[in-house]
């Protein structure tokens, strides 16, 4: 399935957001996620099913002003 992760197109096999994080080796990382611009809580990532063309954001703490 082709999706977009952090603005880059990718071919993945994961069917849920939780599985995607494992597939892309984010598993134990301190990150937050959004699916098609809507926030997905950590606890809801297992239930968040992915479909062709989905846009996913995976973010972590950074310097800010």
């Amino acid at each position: 399935m082709r999706i977009e992760v952090n603005g880059k197109r990718r071919e993945v096999t994961a069917e849920t957001l939780a599985a995607l994080l494992r597939e892309l080796e984010y598993d134990d990382r301190h990150v937050a996620t959004a699916l098609n611009q809507s926030f997905v809580r950590k606890a809801d990532r297992d239930a968040a099913r992915l479909k062709e063309g989905d846009r996913i954001e995976i973010v972590s703490p950074r310097q800010g002003g």
Binding site: N6, G7, L24, E25, Y26, R29, H30, V31, A32, E57, I58, V59, S60, P61, R62, Q63, G64, G65
Partner: peptide
Amino acid sequence: SLRRESGASRSG
């Protein structure tokens, strides 16, 4: 802030 985290880096 929050910024995109790539799978490879651990900068966050």
